[in-house]
């Protein structure tokens, strides 16, 4: 059962990576990388159950946090070219 879940996760991660390589705009790539990060989280959890070592879930939690913060930081950097608070030259406010 967990082998099937691992295979499905790996196939989905390969599709997300293909979209990240192909993506015509940078936002397509960010969607694909965000999805890849979430699937990496799930893969860590499923592999922990597959090898009967559920302690891997702590690593999965850390991956969830890092993935979210990383995606927001990447978007902010590509939108404003800096990571600080928005200032007068940024026309549309924060994300």
């Amino acid at each position: 059962m967990f082998v099937a879940a691992t295979l499905a996760l790996l196939v989905t991660m390969a599709m997300a990576l293909t979209r990240a390589f192909l993506g015509p705009t940078v936002y397509d790539r960010i969607v694909a990388v965000n999805m890849f990060g979430t699937k990496a989280l799930l893969l860590i959890a499923v592999l922990g159950f597959l090898t009967e070592r559920p302690e891997f879930l702590d690593i999965a939690l850390v991956y969830a946090l890092i993935n979210f913060v990383g995606v927001i930081a990447i978007m902010k950097f590509f939108r404003y070219s800096h990571l600080g608070m928005p200032h007068a030259k940024d026309d549309l406010g924060d994300l």
């Binding site: 989280l41 959890a45 559920p54 999965a60 969830a64 946090l65 995606v71 927001i72």
Partner: peptide, 27 residues
Amino acid sequence: KLLLIVLFTFFASPTASHALAQAALSA
């Protein structure tokens, strides 16, 4: 721990999607 993961995903994923859609639209 699993419920913590799913709770965090349910908060983080819509937030990231919203920010991404707004960034793409304003770009």
